[in-house]
Each structure stands twice: as structure tokens, then as C-alpha cells.
């Protein structure tokens, strides 16, 4: 059985002046995989992610995302991926429905399709009562769940999630991960960064960046065995402190 690769990265590098933020990283991500992209603050995760989503040109190396080249086909990449982060997700001063309509429009969905998707999303998340409330008035956990659903509106091949669960309560955090599992089960590839090491364990495979390099990449189970650790937290501390 041949597995479809949706992200191919070879020797990807980004240099700012005399500082190498990302140093020749290479990895492949399969269709429907939950790929955890970990690293300490300043290790180069955000820089690498910006190159993959087509908003920052690499200095050297190559990368192909959803079948498109990160140098020449950045607009195609943007149409084929979803993105959400803790810092930017939805517009606080638009209602839930207005946000859905806005992002649906940005992604070029037809009016009918937006209306269909909007109803489905509101029903699935049980948001009937707050559909016309401003997003800013909702609890953070709700916002993040809506933002994730919105990032899936245009049926992207890959969703990039940058610390999607920071500060979210533990129950909602788990509901969020159940949504991630569901999306992955439906064939959407998930590329996620997090500082919660228990969430690293939910990923199919995890890479750990240290000072611009990928120092480890494997399943959580293999990483724990390899480093003689009983948790991903311990693996992370051993790698990042050495």
C-alpha cells in the first residue's frame, strides 16, 4: 500500500542576517496524519511554519505542501490549507455566523455552500443559541472550537494549528482534540504545535526542534523508548537541555 505524502520538506533553511533560524530541516507528513511540531520558544518552529504556509520565502532547500511548491505556488498552498493559532483565530467583533460567512467568502465558497456549511457547523457544535452573538463575548474554549471548524470550512488537505489550546480548560482541550482526531480520521492532515506535552502524546508522530534543527522525529512511543523516558515531557527536557 502506498501512502500519500502531503508535506515534503528537504533541507529547508531560513537565514536572517547571520542567524540561521531554521537549519536544513527535512521530513515528510502523510495524508491523515496528526503531526506534532514541537520545540522550545525560539527554536524556529514559527519560522518553519511560515515557510510551509507560503507567507515566508525559504533561504534554501525545498518544500512541497499539498502538492504545491513553497517558492512558486504560495497562493495555491494558501487555498489548500487551513490555519488557526491562539493569537489569531476569529474576529471578536463579528458574530459567529458573520465570521463563518467572512472566512467562507475569503476561501471562495459559494453563497449556498457557505450557508450549508454554516448550518452544519452550528449544529455540530451546538451553537444555535449563540449564532448571533459576538465572538468576543464567548468563552475562549468555544472560540477555539469554532475557529478550528472554520479553518476546515473549505475542506483543506492540511490544517496548521499553532498552539491552538493555550489557556483552554482541560475538558474543552480534550473536546478540541476529539475534533482533531475526527478530522484526521476523515483524511485531513493535522500539523500542530503545542506546549502541552500530554498533547504531544496524542500525535501520530512528533518532531522536536532545538536551535533550528530537528533533533528527533518519531512516534511518541518510539521517542520514549529511545530516550528511556516515561513521558514526552521528559523526552523534551532531555533533548532541549542537552
Amino acid at each position: 500500500m502506498k501512502e500519500e505524502t502531503v508535506i515534503k520538506v528537504e533541507g529547508l533553511t531560513k537565514v536572517f542576517g547571520d542567524f540561521t533560524a531554521v537549519n536544513k530541516i527535512s521530513f515528510h507528513v502523510r495524508k491523515g496524519e496528526i503531526f506534532g511540531f514541537l520545540g522550545a520558544n525560539g527554536a524556529g518552529k514559527t519560522t518553519a511554519m511560515k515557510m510551509l504556509i507560503g507567507i515566508s520565502a525559504p533561504s534554501s532547500g525545498s518544500a512541497n505542501v499539498a502538492g504545491f511548491d513553497v517558492y512558486t505556488q504560495t497562493e495555491d498552498i494558501k487555498k489548500s490549507i487551513g490555519y488557526m493559532s491562539q493569537k489569531f483565530a476569529l474576529y471578536d467583533d463579528l458574530t459567529v455566523k458573520e465570521n463563518i460567512r467572512f472566512f467562507g467568502g475569503i476561501y471562495g465558497l459559494s453563497k449556498n455552500r457557505i450557508s450549508q456549511k454554516s448550518n452544519l457547523l452550528i449544529e455540530e457544535l451546538g451553537l444555535e443559541k449563540v449564532a448571533h452573538s459576538l465572538v468576543g463575548s464567548l468563552p475562549l474554549g468555544w472560540k477555539q472550537k469554532i475557529a478550528f471548524s472554520v479553518s476546515l470550512l473549505h475542506d483543506p488537505k492540511i490544517v496548521f494549528l499553532d498552539e491552538p489550546t493555550g489557556g483552554v480548560d482541560p475538558i474543552t482541550r480534550r473536546q478540541f482534540w476529539e475534533m482533531i482526531y475526527k478530522a484526521a480520521n476523515n483524511g485531513t492532515t493535522i500539523f500542530v504545535t503545542t506546549h502541552y506535552m500530554d498533547e504531544a502524546e496524542y500525535c501520530d508522530r512528533v518532531s522536536i526542534m532545538v536551535d533550528g534543527n530537528i533533533e528527533a522525529l518519531d512516534t511518541p512511543k518510539n521517542l520514549k523508548t529511545h530516550f528511556g523516558s516515561d513521558s514526552m515531557n521528559d523526552v523534551f527536557l532531555k533533548l532541549a537541555r542537552s
Binding site: A40, N41, A43, E163, G166, G167, H195, M197, F236, A240
Partner: peptide, 13 residues
């Protein structure tokens, strides 16, 4: 008040 929010596990420790 939340001195370690958004901080990686090494710096948190």
C-alpha cells in the same frame, strides 16, 4: 499572574 503561559517546558521548569 500566569508567568509561564506560552512558555516552553524547559523554560517553565
Amino acid at each position: 499572574d500566569e508567568p509561564t503561559t506560552g512558555v516552553d517546558p524547559v523554560s517553565r521548569k
